[in-house]
Simulated assay, not measured.
Amino acid sequence: MPSETTPPRRRLKAVEEHSAGGLVVDRDTLRAALIARRDRRGRLLWSLPKGHIEDGESAVQAALREVEEETGIVGRVLAPLGVIDYWFTAPDRRVHKTVHHYLMEAAGGDLSDEDIEVEAVAWVPLGALSARLAYPDERRLAVRAPELLADSA
């Protein structure tokens, strides 16, 4: 129970957000394109490219667009990789975010960090993804890639 000097806790509105992205792989070199962003503490965190699903866009269309915008690589979807959902708090709301991930094959483009939201991009060997990816849920998805690649060959 709050004391008389403690202000009452404000209840934040809960909202749903949906994003899509994926793991885009160069089959010739068995490397995947990752992006890095700085967190609030200034740490460089490596992750899978992803972003909001725009109005009228499917999750697959959004995943392909976001991968190209954030990495410069044009992808072709091979298989669903998995869904991650989590909660976070913004200043004015609690957000339940659902992110649809796809395994993609690199079909063109050049690796580029021109997207303003991305600090760096890199091709990372599939075997090194678990060590490089910052988020456990993304590491869990990435370990599925070799098996899914074999199935789609």
Rank of each mutant, 00 (worst) to 15 (best):
G51E: 09
T89V: 11
R31L: 00
S130A: 14
R38L: 10
S58P: 13
E138F: 01
R11N: 12
L34T: 09
S47M: 01
T5M: 13
V25D: 06
E147D: 13
K13T: 06
G72H: 02
R94W: 09
G72R: 01
R43H: 12
L48K: 03
K50A: 10
P8L: 09
P49W: 10
L148F: 03
L141M: 11
A131N: 04
R27W: 12
V25R: 02
S47H: 01
D28H: 13
L44E: 08
T98E: 09
I116S: 10
L12M: 07
Y86P: 01
G127C: 13
L149D: 10
R9G: 13
D110E: 09
A63G: 08
E114H: 06
H101R: 06
G108S: 13
S47T: 06
R9S: 13
A36W: 01
R27A: 11
V118E: 03
L129D: 02
R11A: 14
S152P: 07
A106G: 00
E57S: 10
L111A: 15
A20K: 03
E17R: 15
I53P: 06
A128P: 14
L103A: 12
P2A: 02
T29S: 09
E70R: 01
R93I: 14
T29P: 04
V121P: 02
M1P: 13
V99A: 09
L149E: 14
A134N: 00
Y135L: 02
R94V: 15
L129M: 05
D110M: 05
S130N: 14
